[in-house]
Amino acid sequence: MIVAEQKPMEEIVALVAGHKRVLALGCGGCVTVCLSGGQREVSTLASIVRLGCRMTVEEATLERQCDAEFFDAVREQAERCDAILSLACGVGVQMAARLFPGKPVYPALNTRFMGTNDGAGQWSENCLACGDCSLGVFGAVCPVARCSKSLLNGPCGGSANGMCEVDPERIECAWQLVHDRLKALGRMDVLDAIAEPRDWSKTHSGGPRRLSREDMADLR
């Protein structure tokens, strides 16, 4: 899922300052699951802003904010507010802005990464959406996203006791994980091959990415 966390309250307050009626708009997708932008968080944040900024704050939570079709439910509500405070990930915030061209839209969250839930209140990054998935090679552990240097040919010198030099308390060395997985699978031979430099043009290095699928266009 996309993992996000709420911005510091002072930052949120500074963003909405000066408005009279704000719509706090949550999302029922990833940010609900990671407890940062669902209905519950909308209601808590709305109360704080109401009290702290002395303004009217309306509340709504869409099934998904990254999809235009779900916005019909809040169109009227949004029109009568003079700004939207979106508790979606950055994608949802921008969809709201696209659908309400004349209205200020502010992010209430910092979108952090795509990752897994690793236990209560713990998440970690797993995928960078590099556009050319190599998990099949690396024993289904991603060195692109999980190695701090995106190394493709084995660990750097800083790997110690299974942890990464960048934060030996909290970051596991991806290459220790790749190694352990391939060993368990009896496929250490995979690591003998030299991994070629990546084609980074499939990442954001190639510009903002777009996807068009002819088959889907026909369906519409």
Partner: peptide, 20 residues
């Protein structure tokens, strides 16, 4: 680095550098 982990992979990694 003969001292980094995983130890058994260290010589293999040198072999890869030689191949490179």
């Amino acid at each position: 680095n003969p001292f980094g982990d995983p130890f058994e992979f260290r010589a293999a990694r040198l072999e890869k550098k030689v191949k490179a």
